[in-house]
Amino acid sequence: MKEELIISGRMNYKVDPSLHIWGWEIPLYLFLGGLAAGVLFFAGLYYLRGKENEYQSAVKWVPMITPFLLAIGLGALFLDLHHKPYFWRLYTTIKLQSPMSWGAWTLMVITPLSIIWSATYIKDVFPKWDWKYKWVDDLVAYFIEYRTQLAWIMIIFSVILGIYTGILLSAFNARPLWNTSILGPLFLTSGLSAGAALIMMLSKNPLERIRFSQIDLMLIAVELTMVIHMFMGFRASTEVQIEAAALFLGGPYTLSFWIFVVFIGMLLPAFLEIWELKGNHIPAYIPAVMIISGSLMLRFIIVHAGQASRYLY
């Protein structure tokens, strides 16, 4: 029998005995970014489909939460930096090969865009709203004229934001669990699903709720397919990826992943939504909260488990 015992003299902070450079800040940001991307995507989509008045929550008022979601996410990102006074260096260069650089610039577009989009609808949602300054009124009136263009840009950048949160991780081939190209689409789908769940939860319109419940069902089916494909890919890959998959298939993350992400985050809400679409009454917030918490847990578990997966040499 061949055995191997490795003793390393290295014990660097946040690197040894296993990598833990990213704590709660990055997964929280990935979740909030994905959630905001989901909400903004549907706002843009249903505006362009002319459903502005039919789906008022999706188009008009739920997007007003996104500047706050993005601000909290950016705050978490800032807290994660070890060399905080130099954060502005992100914006002195564009590095095409660095997903983090793409993300920084995408946020630079989508954060102001979410504020502008919200501003154009603020008088619809709060009729007594007064901008106080005429130039702000003029500026908002100017943007209202270009809503179609704004919606298109918002759809494109929300997809980039949603998918980049996964690509950020999948670009690291040093961490076999992250190094799968399905992570980008999986995080995008999870973000869209959480966004749809938030709209469903906050909407007062039954037709809108049903529409977003149907959307969520479809997205959950896509997510489940991707999760299965991810593990099939790992199991058919090299030893390091087989070991990475083992973290979820009997390893230390098995219970948390399958219970919090797959069962509570996908299967149970899907079941409840089918139940409701069949005519039974289930408070909308129950499946919605489950989907959103599953989306959050997915980020936390993947970020933490990924750091535990590595090459052994």
């Binding site: 290295r10 902070y13 690197v15 450079i21 930096l81 260096r89 983090m100 040093a174």
Partner: peptide, 27 residues
Amino acid sequence: EDKCIGCGACISSCPYDARYPHPDGHV
């Protein structure tokens, strides 16, 4: 050092774990 923001991306990307966050903040 004065371009590094200490985001940790390079630390995660190294299969040899050869980098660490310096107490001064940079990698």
